[in-house]
Design a protein around this nucleic acid. Structure first.
Length: 216
DNA sequence: TTCAGGATGTACT
DNA sequence: GTACATCCTGAAC
């Protein structure tokens, strides 16, 4: 297929973070169900110089070990005791850097994703639940059934349950840039404009046809 | 519509 | 013991 290869991830992290917008994230659950969604929001973390990165200053701990892995590896960790965050490792092996996936829109098997999120089908969700479907890193992992069990997976191997397809890259003009979320502790790095996203409306229209209420 | 507070467990000091 | 790349609920407006 058009699965993204190692070369895609083996680049400058900011470039990868931007280039991930509009790409298709594919998750194969334990039972074989294939979930697909389109990435709408990302953040870059670069250990070399970024106090917000878990591996700032090349700090190696059991948790951060995955960040030093080859590009195209999944880095998934537990946050606040009950949520998970999905990252893609970038740059050369030994350079601790990654892109956090903060948001996405469903593209296939939305009913299953909705069930993972709310225990109900897509058509049974409230407007509020639809509006806040996969617009956060914890929500995304919940919807795609991702936990630390998937930490370290090789994204370039379609057999490991998690990979990316080329999809339709976001037009540069539609990409927004801003400060990252939830890193107030990170000193000067707080102001780095390393968050990238595409407007909900654009994305939703592209995904679902005209309405936005007819997801799949 | 916005906002404060609580849930919850692991990693690291 | 403290902090944490979050999310949900319920109350106030």
């Amino acid at each position: 297929m058009d699965i993204l290869t190692k070369d895609f991830y083996d680049r400058d992290t900011l470039t990868v973070a931007r280039d991930l917008l509009g790409r298709e994230l594919v998750r194969v659950m334990e039972d074989g169900t294939v979930l697909r969604c389109v990435i709408t929001e990302t953040e870059a973390y670069i250990g070399r110089l970024d106090k917000a990165c878990h591996a700032y200053g090349y700090k190696r701990t059991p948790r951060t070990e995955t960040l030093f892995a080859p590009p195209g590896t999944a880095y998934i960790y537990l946050i606040y005791g009950m949520y998970h965050c999905l990252n893609f490792v970038t740059e050369a092996e030994g350079e601790p850097a990654a892109v956090l996936i903060r948001g996405a829109a469903p593209a296939a098997n939305g009913d299953i994703i909705a069930k993972n999120r709310f225990g109900r089908k897509l058509c049974e969700l409230s407007a509020y639940q639809r509006r806040n479907f996969l617009n956060g890193p914890g929500k995304l992992c919940r919807g795609l059934d991702l936990t630390r069990a998937q930490n370290g997976l090789d994204l370039t191997d379609s057999g490991q349950g998690l990979y990316l397809c080329a999809g339709t890259p976001a037009a540069p003009a539609s990409v927004r840039t801003g400060k990252r979320i939830g890193i107030d502790y990170a000193g000067e790095a707080v102001d780095f404009p390393w968050r990238f996203w595409v407007e909900d409306g654009d994305l939703w229209r592209k995904m679902a046809g005209q309405k936005g209420d007819n997801l799949l």
